[in-house]
Design a protein around this nucleic acid. Sequence first.
DNA 1: ATTTAAAATATTGTATACAAAATACTTGAC
DNA 2: GTCAAGTATTTTGTATACAATATTTTAAAT
Lengths: 232, 232
Amino acid sequence: MATDKDQSGTSTDAAGSDAGPIARIPLHDAVAGRLRDMIIEGVLEPGARIHETHIGAQLGVSRTPLREAIKFLASEGLIELIPARGAIVRVFSKKDVADMLTVLRSLESLAGKLACENGSDRDIRAIRKIHDQMLVYYKQKRRLEYYKLNQEIHSAIVRLADNEHLAYLHGILQSRLKRIRFIGHEGPTNWASAVEEHEEIIAALEARDTVRLMAILDRHLLGAWERVEAII
Amino acid sequence: MATDKDQSGTSTDAAGSDAGPIARIPLHDAVAGRLRDMIIEGVLEPGARIHETHIGAQLGVSRTPLREAIKFLASEGLIELIPARGAIVRVFSKKDVADMLTVLRSLESLAGKLACENGSDRDIRAIRKIHDQMLVYYKQKRRLEYYKLNQEIHSAIVRLADNEHLAYLHGILQSRLKRIRFIGHEGPTNWASAVEEHEEIIAALEARDTVRLMAILDRHLLGAWERVEAII
DNA sequence: ATTTAAAATATTGTATACAAAATACTTGAC
DNA sequence: GTCAAGTATTTTGTATACAATATTTTAAAT
């Protein structure tokens, strides 16, 4: 929920003639989004202190909304609050990453199961489409775009599960892992096998083969650990 | 992490001669704890607006730390933020509860598996002890105490899994469900079967029978749904 | 009586100001 | 030169003040 809205930051608010009411983003929300981006992109390194006045000046906001954003991200687990000593960007150990992926495997397996049960054919076709586009980026070796669609597919499967709480927890884990994955997205990753697994994932989903989908997702994320282990 | 510290609120800070440094609780932290309690106990009903000045006066704090606490709980999912219109206590539908329990089943199954693998004999004996005490409360029909130890056992198993991120996500779900369970802890719940299942859970854990433990935990939480479904 | 518009009120959003810590620095002694 | 104590500075913690938005009330017109 909070994790994926991302209505601030990088999104370039294409000022088209949307029907709905114009989005009114509270400052603390916008600031939270920017901080998230800064953490993921490594502008704020793990362990770095977040000076309220400094960062506040940099973003052009006062301390009040900045502090509110910090509390929000602290609850999300991206920032650590040290009483009377401010906030630091959370440091994730190797075990942390392994543990996160362990949980993620379980969560995505569940999501896969529910997606098979609840997903409409239309939604599944949409995922296939994202997958096809991802393949194009893969062949063109456009890593950043590939990386983004890769994540998008996983999120899409979770959305298909039609379980808001599952999506929320998944989002938190993804958010925490994003920094690591961002680092990895340019490394000498074993790209080919990941792509192959994705192909299998889509196929299993289309066939609504619950058991197979769960197995592949599980294996895929086990592979993610191997792909990511080296770079930590 | 944020969910279980609970260093504020009800905890009666027994001023003994502990070795460690004395706890210094920031106001926003204490306020967050109190708000959590108020939500769980129904003092703040689902859908109720949280008037900053009003609640602030009631708790004897200014709006600044109160707002920080609200942002924190919003990220936790207990409170919903409506731009320019304040915060309301989140309302959970029947589907919400069902969805949460679906995820919880998956999470606790995983926890059970990891607990079998990682838990020390000592830790398992400690859980057995909590269980025995819970049985005493059960026989005495002391529902509130029973209810608390019940939760404690589940949390303890999760802790045994030695996976901080699993524990965190589990905590969030528990936190969201607490209100529902709090309502239910005095209802005409099928108490007997829950106790029986708990006995099986402990037995499986002691035998380190991973498969059986996972199965029982899963069934136990399915039962929790049935026990809770009626009261919503 | 009902609806609409306008004014008054209350409430949230944001910034600033003050208080209490923690950190950094200076000075002095050994 | 190193360490310690005390002072100065910085930084966080909390409260208040001001601005912008939403809600309610009031009054007028139909």
